[in-house]
């Protein structure tokens, strides 16, 4: 039998620190997209809550916590991150395993919003994009999911095939922010 070794979408390029900002890989575990069948939205929301103990998130919101989290993931679309989905939910939802389809990173540190603002058209201002908010948008022209996890911490997801470009683009943005904050040329390309 052939033994296959799972490889990270980021292939050893992370973690990465530039100035005050850190970029790291998130091992999200099982990821499943759930879409309600026609007319099953309410039934699915309550079955989901019963099965996993977390709310079915409304548009632009997340629920749960690290290890068992639900992300609003688009029109009629929620992504469950962490647990294997309860099989009985398939009565109400189409479920698709997306575990290998996404590269997931966390970017955090003082000035993180300035770095992201260089890459996405989203309105990230404090009053508009709060902790627990999520959006589907673009990061450096790539389709992405952006979630605010903490005051200075965001989760960014892109299709796995774009993971390398994501790291490059975020690194350049982080260098720009660090340079603005008082220069730190020595930090360029500092993979630690």
């Amino acid at each position: 039998m052939i033994e296959l070794t799972a490889r990270s979408p980021f292939n050893g390029t992370l973690p990465l620190s530039v100035g005050a900002l850190n970029l790291s890989q998130v091992d999200a575990g099982q990821m499943t997209a759930l879409s309600p069948r026609k007319g099953q939205g309410k039934a699915l929301a309550s079955a989901f809550k019963q099965a996993h103990g977390i709310a079915w998130p409304g548009p632009g919101r997340i629920s749960g916590r690290e290890g068992c989290r639900a992300l609003w993931f688009g029109h009629s679309h929620v992504l469950l991150m962490g647990p294997v989905p309860d099989a009985t939910l398939c009565q109400h939802a189409a479920m698709v395993d997306q575990s290998d389809a996404w590269g997931v990173v966390r970017i955090e540190g003082a000035g993180v919003r300035d770095a992201l603002a260089r890459l996405t058209p989203l309105d990230l201002r404090e009053t508009q994009f709060k902790r627990g908010h999520t959006a589907r948008s673009e990061i450096a022209d790539m389709p992405a999911s952006v979630t605010r996890i903490g005051a200075q911490s965001y989760q960014v997801m892109v299709f796995r095939a774009m993971a390398g470009t994501l790291v490059e683009e975020i690194e350049v943005a982080m260098r720009g922010v660090a340079a603005r904050a008082g220069g730190c040329d020595h930090a360029i390309g500092n993979h630690d």
Binding site: G74, H75, H77, A135, R136, S137, P143
Partner: peptide, 8 residues
């Protein structure tokens, strides 16, 4: 089409 957003 909200292509790079919610997909609606």
């Amino acid at each position: 089409h909200h292509e790079a957003g919610c997909g609606a």
